[in-house]
Design a protein around this nucleic acid. Structure first.
Length: 482
RNA sequence: GCGGUCAUAGUAUAGCCUGGUUAGUAUGUUGGCCUUCCAAGCCAAUUACCCGGGUUCAAAUCCCGGUGACCGCACCA
């Protein structure tokens, strides 16, 4: 299934759509989730909590989206989350200053250098616009964070460009008050904001987006403990073009230690349960130049789609980069006791893009069933926006009333969809398109013996189920897997 | 931000070149009839020319500007 079909489904069936679409000055890169999108997202996150947060006994927080300027001085984002750009005064083209200079005259300037250094080299070497030979303007910094003005004086603060900074600044309190012990995982779901130059492709490149981030605080001297890895040692990983188990990955040096291998393992088990094809997924170790400025080791979890490989998760070993930065800027101590050892914890991060993950689930689940002339969103039942359609075969002879009462018995426990209108086949097709795994239909026999038909989305097969067994039957298929 | 292409109902499109239509079609949606378990049929209803300006007696149509989308470049924690 391809990108166009997914976006068409998203627009037509209330999964997601552009924000403020009726106003023509609405900026790009902002999308909203409709009813089915929210329901899918909530269930995806519930699965994430089960498979990662609860499984590893992590704690979850919900931090504020606007954060103090100092946070980003300490984190390095004010200095490093910005690109030096230079603009041509004649044709208006914009270039990354460091790249353009190294291409024009092989002088290498680090991107974090002072802006005057770029200007000096441009003047000294007579560099002009590579496109039109026009004169270049002065180099500027383009910072990708959104600045906000707080209070009447409009004091500087920033929308967080990643959710994890709240986890870092909250770490000392969490450790003290929540009886922290290393390794300690802290998770957060929330919005992050980045002023992308060119947002693209709906959910895949947003200016405002959801992240589910996990930061595991650990003792850097105890990364070879294999006790947790035991649980996932046989999980198969696609990594660096190989197919190996978690424990083999450590033995072969593909993954640096047991600690990281364990988290890569549970992350893989999580994604297996989302319905994303693991055959079309991989971990990829990032090279020195691809890594973020804070990472010493970085793996991306990537999924193949019709528009290429997408990065869904960044796994970064951030060392003590963040905690030492915040310790230095705030004066607070971030050291903790691990046994009888005083340590400044290191951080391993699992930073997940929720929107991208949802897109991949949709693309990998969407099927065209030509034989039956239908489109089926073959979601895992526990992720489906609607669990069960409740339909009356016809409205008359009391079937409507019977159906309504069955619906009332179900709709507090399940996400249901009540539908009386139109041809039954059309109603089944509509449910198929939003991934609803089951439909029960009330017919004349129901009035006689309190049974209904239960239709399975993927096979279209039906069986008769007694109303008294209905709850058990549905629960069995709709609860999250263990 | 640059270049190319594009913008008409929920969705997909015709009409634009050559200005004047009641803006057509398909599908969807809503109600009704019929049917009574897989997008059937019939009747009715419903919904659109991206925004702003210009040219003109008259603009969906021609011109300018803006915004957005797609592709490429670049960027991408």
């Amino acid at each position: 299934m391809n990108y166009d079909k997914v976006i068409k489904l998203a627009l037509e069936r209330g999964f997601y759509f552009p924000s403020c679409e009726m106003y023509n000055n609405s900026p790009a890169g902002f999308w909203e989730y409709g009813p089915n999108g929210v329901s899918l997202k909530n269930k995806f996150l519930e699965l994430w909590r089960r498979e990662l947060v609860r499984r590893d006994n992590m704690m979850e927080i919900d931090g504020s989206q606007i954060m103090a300027k100092s946070v980003f001085e300490a984190s390095g984002h004010l200095a490093s989350f910005a690109d030096p750009i230079v603009k041509c005064t004649k044709c208006g083209s914009t270039f990354r200053a460091d790249r353009m200079i190294s291409e024009s005259c092989s002088v290498v300037i680090p991107e974090s250098a002072d802006l005057v250094e770029f200007d000096d080299v441009i003047v000294k070497n007579g560099i002009v616009c590579p496109r039109c030979q026009g004169a270049l303007d002065k180099t500027k910094k383009f910072n990708m964070m959104f600045r906000v003005g707080i209070g009447p004086e409009g004091e500087d603060a920033y929308l967080r460009p990643e959710t994890c900074q709240s986890i870092f600044v909250d770490f000392p309190r969490l450790y003290k008050t929540m009886r922290g012990k290393l390794p300690m995982g802290v998770a957060q779901v929330g919005k992050s904001f980045r002023n992308e130059i060119s947002p693209r492709q709906s959910l895949l490149r947003l200016r405002e987006f959801y992240q589910a981030e996990i930061e595991i605080f650990c003792n850097p001297e105890r990364l070879h403990d294999a006790s947790k890895l035991e649980r996932v040692k046989d999980v198969t990983l696609h990594i660096d073009n190989r197919e190996i188990t978690c424990s083999e990955a450590v033995d072969d040096g593909v993954l640096p230690n047991e600690f990281i291998a364990y988290y890569v393992g549970i992350l893989t088990e999580f994604y297996q349960k989302t319905g994303i094809s693991m055959e079309r997924s991989r971990f990829r170790k990032l090279g020195e130049k691809e890594k973020a400025f804070y990472a010493s080791v970085a793996f991306d979890f990537e999924v193949e789609t019709t528009i290429g490989w997408l990065e869904l998760v960044a796994c970064n070993y951030r060392t003590d980069y963040d905690l030492s930065g915040h310790a230095e800027h705030s004066g607070e101590s971030f050291q903790v006791m691990d046994g009888d050892q005083r340590v400044l914890p290191h951080v391993f991060e699992i930073s997940m893009g929720i929107d991208r993950s949802l897109y991949c689930i949709l693309e990998h689940s969407l099927m065209e069933d030509d034989e039956n002339n239908r489109t089926v969103l073959s979601l895992k039942p526990y992720l489906a926006p609607r669990h069960v359609g409740v339909l009356s075969l016809v409205k008359k002879d009391g079937l409507r009333e019977k159906t309504d009462s069955i619906h009332e018995d179900l709709n507090r426990k399940y996400d249901t969809f009540l539908d009386h209108a139109g041809a039954i086949g059309r109603r089944y097709r509509r449910l198929d398109e939003v991934g609803c795994p089951f439909a029960i239909t009330v017919d004349h026999q129901t009035l006689q013996d309190d049974t209904v038909t239960l239709r399975d989305r993927d096979t279209m097969k039906q069986r008769r189920v007694s109303l008294s067994d209905l709850d058990d039957t549905l629960s069995e298929s709709l609860t999250f897997p263990v």
